[in-house]
């Protein structure tokens, strides 16, 4: 096995949160779906079964497919929030923890470069964690779909649309799209946490929170602007959605529910805007800033005395 893969494995041995967090998240989502299925009289969208049945008969099969896919895609939201938190806590400790317990002396006694080490930690936070979350999302979607199918079959005849290949093609594509774009989108944040983790003399948590807050305050006082705050807000799931789904990303993705119809995109493929996302300057600026932070973290691990 390749040396880099060993470094990744090492990280997963240490940070079990990589798979435990998505597992817990999936358990909550599936448990919630089952709980809601048992206790709620409403299926969704604030409609009762008669209204839903009515709507069901009005909608074209194509629209039903899109609606089912969209409902299942909502499962990604708690996972995206979970990834933000686990990325944060994993990354601020990734280079600080080994200094605190002096195990950095053991890791440094092995022929592994500092760049490889730092990149392995970046990879865990920006690739492995979103990938594990995506697996959790998919499992949750199957669970939620099963719970919903049972409930719907009991009330209406919609189950055919829940299990249609079109729905799952849509769902899987959307999962993959969100995963890949969010990996790229969060790089500067993770890189910043890693830099803090490499430099902080103590409490990387404090530094990771207070440094941006201080910078925002300073900006507000000196220039009277809120550029940094806007930039940081953009790196939240809200900002991510605005960039990967276009302007409608923050406004229900173009789904408008009416009494007897739903205005909606023809398919979920039409709401994904990969080319526009790739053309967003914020994406590339973020990646460049991330690269600078990572270079700083590698430099700090390489050249700063790690054991005093």
């Amino acid at each position: 096995m390749n040396r880099f893969l060993w470094l990744i494995r090492r990280e997963i041995w240490e940070a079990r949160v990589v798979w435990i967090a998505p597992a817990i998240c999936a358990a909550i989502v599936i448990g919630g779906a089952i709980f809601a299925g048992i206790w709620s009289h409403h299926i969704a969208f604030g409609m009762d079964s008669a209204e839903l049945s009515d709507l069901n008969s009005q909608l074209t099969p194509q629209k039903l497919d899109a609606l089912a896919s969209m409902s299942l895609a909502a499962v990604t939201v708690p996972f995206l929030i979970m990834v933000m938190f686990t990325q944060f806590f994993y990354s601020i400790d990734a280079l600080f923890g080994e200094r605190r317990d002096r195990s950095v002396l053991f890791w440094k006694s092995l022929p592994v470069s500092d760049a490889q080490t730092v990149l392995s930690k970046l990879t865990v936070a920006t690739v492995v964690m979103p990938a594990a979350a995506t697996a959790g999302i998919f499992i949750s979607q199957i669970g939620v779909c099963a719970a919903a199918a049972i409930k719907l079959a009991w009330i209406t005849g919609m189950q055919a649309h829940l299990w249609s290949p079109v729905v799952w093609l849509n769902v899987l594509s959307l999962d993959a799209y969100i995963m890949v774009t969010s990996m790229l989108w969060y790089v500067p944040m993770v890189a910043f946490y890693l830099l803090v983790s490499a430099l902080a003399p103590r409490s990387p948590f404090g530094f990771a929170v207070l440094v941006p807050l201080g910078a925002m305050l300073l900006e507000k006082i000196v220039f009277g602007t809120r550029l940094l705050a806007t930039m940081l807000f953009l790196r939240s799931p809200v900002g991510l959605f605005a960039h990967i789904f276009g302007p409608q990303g923050t406004h229900g993705l173009g789904f408008v529910f009416k009494k007897n119809d739903v205005d909606m995109p023809v398919s979920l493929f039409s709401i994904m805007k990969p080319l526009e996302f790739l053309a967003t300057p914020e994406l590339w600026v973020g990646l460049v800033i991330g690269a600078v932070f990572i270079a700083g973290a590698v430099w700090a691990r390489r050249y700063r005395d790690q054991t005093n």
């Binding site: 041995w13 080994e98 006694s109």
Partner: peptide, 27 residues
């Protein structure tokens, strides 16, 4: 090779993981 004082092996590491890891990265 280098051994600092006894505290530097990470406390979370399992014995077989330590062996696997060093075998994996050290030529």
């Amino acid at each position: 090779s280098f051994i600092a004082d006894v505290a530097v092996l990470p406390r979370w590491l399992k014995v077989h993981q330590a062996i696997d890891f060093v075998a994996g990265v050290h030529p």
